[in-house]
Amino acid sequence: MEKVTYKPLIEVLKKHNELYNGLYKQCEMTYGPIPSELITKWVVNSIEPIVKNMHERFPESNNIHPVFEILYTRILKLLANKSAISYENEYKKAWAILEKAPHLLTHNPGLPIRALDAALLKIRAYAPKETIRWIMRMTRAVPNLQSTDEFLKAGRIFAWFSGLAHLKENALTDFKSLSQPTKELILSTAGFDGFTIDKLEQTWHNKENYFHETAGGFKGFNGPFRKPPKVTLIDDKIFATDSNNHFAFFVDRFGHSFLPAPKFEVNLSSQALKNAIALFSKKSRTSLPESNISSMVIANQTAVFTLDNSHLLYIFSHPDS
């Protein structure tokens, strides 16, 4: 079986062996036993390089123990709930980010580690196909991020770029607060060189009415709805419901996301619906299947409509709105 070879880490393991064994036992009592080989593999291949790199770069920080304890506790939990098995590749790559960011682990190491895990959970929930791309972007950017604060902000901005549209507002605020070199670093890492704040604020990249995508779907196919949904506007924000499941709907050029919302009713008069369809058809010079449309909203440069016989939301850019 593989072994830890970095001597300062071995010293720490020996010194705190009672605590580490206790943490494992606590985990086993809650979740059941974890195969020894798995823990060893993760410690040797993922945790040791992080600790080693940090300690070699910043030996004066003297915090092998706190960093190891946090990572060890995390990996025990991730192995116990099988996340580190189902998403092994994601976690390996994500933790490799920390290896490239030893300077972030010298003070309050728990913050970036917990943030990384929380980000993975969120991105996997809202944009699972984008997880690896988010990790790659973070890996490229992290050596040049100077502080934990920048790390957290970059993470949020990249998550927005990955399709977590509900983060747009906060991500823009974060972006504005960054230094110019960091802004450029983030944009170039994401492949958006030359983008201005104005351009980022735009919901869509084109200025025409244009069909972009569908969102939602039937619950049986991993969608959020059991019945064909309807959309409505509340405080200029788009909401969608199938009368049992209620969501706030966020969409922009990078993707879309559904956030659970409290119960609300869709009160759309047939006349208002007709007016919205007419307005959109006129501007876009597109003919919509009027008889089938069950609801439609136009807001934030976006038009969204639903059909009587579909579990999807149909999304158009609508720059004039």
Partner: peptide
Amino acid sequence: FEKFEIEDLYED
């Protein structure tokens, strides 16, 4: 017996 102990990480 293959239960994990922290000593597994560094001891033969």
